[in-house]
């Protein structure tokens, strides 16, 4: 119980979110502007830009960890049926 929690805490401390973010950026296809440049200054993430589909890339892979139910979407039946206004146009 307590021992497990302590150990978990110790290992949890070892997990570094900054490194995690770096790994994620690479996975998401970060284009680093200048290679060899000091990647981390004052704890800020490296420069560079993420491609348009960066978050889609991550989502597609992350979905395998989720067993989300698909949801049902429809249009008919979401509003009261009302006849259209009298026709104004002439043919």
């Amino acid at each position: 119980g307590k021992e497990k929690a302590t150990q978990m805490f110790a290992e949890g401390n070892a997990f570094n979110p900054t490194i995690f973010a770096e790994r994620l950026l690479s996975f998401m296809g970060l284009n680093r502007l200048e290679d060899g440049e000091d990647e981390q200054q004052n704890g800020h993430a490296a420069d560079g830009y993420l491609p348009q589909d960066a978050w889609h890339r991550l989502a597609r892979r992350a979905e395998s960890c989720f067993s989300t139910a698909p949801s049902f979407h429809y249009m008919i039946g979401s509003f009261h049926a009302e006849p259209p206004p009298p026709k104004q146009r002439t043919e």
Partner: peptide
């Protein structure tokens, strides 16, 4: 995949608000 009912339950759909549905109509 379509819905075939128009009931109080189907009108609870939350994808669009009432005024958004009015503009769609």
């Amino acid at each position: 995949l379509v819905n075939t009912a128009m009931t109080d339950v189907t009108r609870m759909s939350s994808d669009y608000t009432d005024n958004e549905l009015e503009l769609f109509r």
